[in-house]
């Protein structure tokens, strides 16, 4: 699966009187990892919810390659190859890890309701093939041995890995990761960084929302910085670290 280019053009979104996203434009290039950083409340997660269609945009447009995503319902956007993880992990806690990941294959099933109800052999074969694929994915993210455990029993870091595997199970062209390192310790973060680079290797475009600047620097080709719902800087990780506007946004003005 090859990655797709995400283009965000002057999008805006307000909630009553609060402007969550004022005017944001950026491009996440195909096959690259784009970091999206900014202080709390700068509009990162809202941007992600706008891309995945959970919120409608008030203005602007979002394109995946040449397809307009704005105005589409979330399941349509997912069908076009956009997958995501959630900042506040959203797994079905009482189901097995494998079953959670299998949810990601929903669009991969070709058998219709009648074939399922008639127990058409093709439906069972398809389920087995996708299940094998999901076990492979769990191996790839490093938790293959936990496939049959209940998702709710896993450690924090492992649950984040299940979310990533579930997103990968949909064979995405664009993967959105919403603060995947939140709550992880140093060793877990290092392994997560390797995993993101491994996903990049497979050709999938990654948009990474993250607070941990070291992780972002390690994996990103390009970084976009948001503050108060606008993008204030973009460039390579090294350029961003030197940018006065970024330093001001995070640390405050020097002469204040």
């Amino acid at each position: 699966m090859t990655g797709a280019t995400l283009e965000v053009r002057r999008i805006a979104r307000r909630f009553q009187h609060i402007v969550a996203v004022d005017n944001i434009s950026f491009v996440a290039r195909a096959g690259h990892v784009t970091g999206l950083i900014g202080p709390n409340g700068s509009g990162k997660t809202t941007t992600m919810n706008l891309i995945t269609g959970l919120y409608p945009t008030d203005a602007g447009s979002i394109l995946l390659d040449d397809t307009t995503l704005t105005g589409l319902r979330p399941h349509r956007i997912a069908a076009l190859g956009v997958a995501r993880t959630f900042q506040n992990i959203r797994l079905l806690a009482d189901q097995t890890v494998l079953s959670n990941v299998m949810l990601g294959t929903h669009r991969g099933h070709r058998q219709n309701l009648l074939a399922v109800l008639a127990r058409w052999p093709g439906a069972a074969a398809e389920e087995r093939a996708l299940q094998a694929r999901c076990r492979e994915l769990l191996d790839e993210v490093g938790i293959g041995h936990l496939a049959d455990a209940a998702a709710g029993d896993l450690s924090y870091g492992d649950r984040r890995r299940v979310e990533i595997a579930r997103a990968l199970a949909s064979a995405p062209r664009l993967l959105l990761l919403d603060e995947p390192a939140a709550g992880m310790n140093h060793a877990e973060k290092a392994r997560l960084g390797d995993l993101i680079l491994q996903i990049r290797q497979s050709g999938i475009t990654v948009l990474l929302i993250e607070h941990d600047i070291d992780l972002v620097s390690k994996v990103s080709d390009h970084v976009v910085v948001l503050n108060f719902g606008c993008e204030i800087a973009e460039g390579t990780p090294a350029e961003i670290r030197r940018d006065p506007a970024v330093i001001e946004a995070y640390l405050g003005r020097e002469d204040a």
Partner: peptide
């Protein structure tokens, strides 16, 4: 929300 996001 998860169901929609996974394409349901």
């Amino acid at each position: 929300v998860v169901a929609q996001t996974m394409g349901v």
